[in-house]
Design a protein around this nucleic acid. Structure first.
Length: 216
DNA sequence: ACATTAAGTGATT
DNA sequence: AATCACTTAATGT
């Protein structure tokens, strides 16, 4: 996709103009690569090195922690977000500690590492953006830990489902019990039973490959 | 019609 | 809440 495509500036302005001055947007457009990944695609895997920092224009990315075959979903990234962890990874040439899977077709601009250092000094807005991103991700991470420690699986499940519904702006989720189980690092049987309970309580409606959120 | 994949369930730990 | 073992239902070829 060409960087000069007219929609790029519009999309950038739509998501980042309240953060970045137009002079900075010009630079982003000049050196950034427009890129897109389809649902199911891999943005980054654990152990890989990142060479670019993504600014997400649309779509959703699922951030996962993985430890010997077991997985746990930590949070989702959407338009206006960036992968905060990638900054440190880029600057220090460190390997990613997360896996990023595309949950909904992603459209993004990739910023090359070598520009990042200069921009951090040159643009206060960018500096603040990075620090804010880090802060927000830290809060999300703490929330994940809290959920893990203090919530029962049924509560975690409902929260997880609502979270997806929110980020994707759709109360109808196309997802299997197995996928949910994998994301929450539990077994399919457990999810099936809890979904049935939530269904009977009128909080959701579920059938094969489909879960609808009925309450907010 | 048959095979495959998704979901439901009782019993046990 | 996890695991096993099995059944039933939905879907693809």
């Amino acid at each position: 996709m060409l960087i000069s495509e007219p929609t790029l500036r519009e999309k950038l302005e739509e998501n980042y103009s309240h953060l970045f001055e137009s002079k900075f947007l010009d630079e982003i457009i000049k050196v950034g690569f427009r890129s897109s990944i389809k649902r199911g695609g891999l943005l980054i895997d654990i152990g890989e090195e990142m060479t670019h920092i993504p600014l997400i224009l649309s779509g959703v990315i699922k951030i996962i922690r993985k430890e010997n075959k077991k997985e746990l979903v930590l949070y989702f990234l959407e338009h206006g977000d960036t992968c905060a962890i990638s900054f440190a990874n880029c600057i220090n040439r460190q390997q990613s500690i997360f896996k990023g899977i595309v949950e909904e077709d992603v459209d993004m601009v990739l910023l090359p590492v070598d520009k990042i250092d200069k921009w951090l000094v040159k643009y206060e807005s960018f500096r603040h953006f990075i620090i804010d991103s880090y802060h927000f991700r830290l809060l999300e991470m703490v929330e994940s830990i809290d959920d893990l420690a203090f919530l029962k699986m049924k509560e975690r499940l409902l929260k997880y489902l609502k979270n997806i519904a929110n980020t994707s702006n759709d109360l109808n989720l196309e997802i299997t019990h197995q996928e949910v189980a994998t994301d929450l690092n539990t077994s399919r049987v457990v999810i099936t039973r809890l979904l049935k309970e939530l269904h009977d309580e009128g909080k959701i409606y579920s059938k094969r490959n489909k879960i609808e959120i009925l309450e907010n």
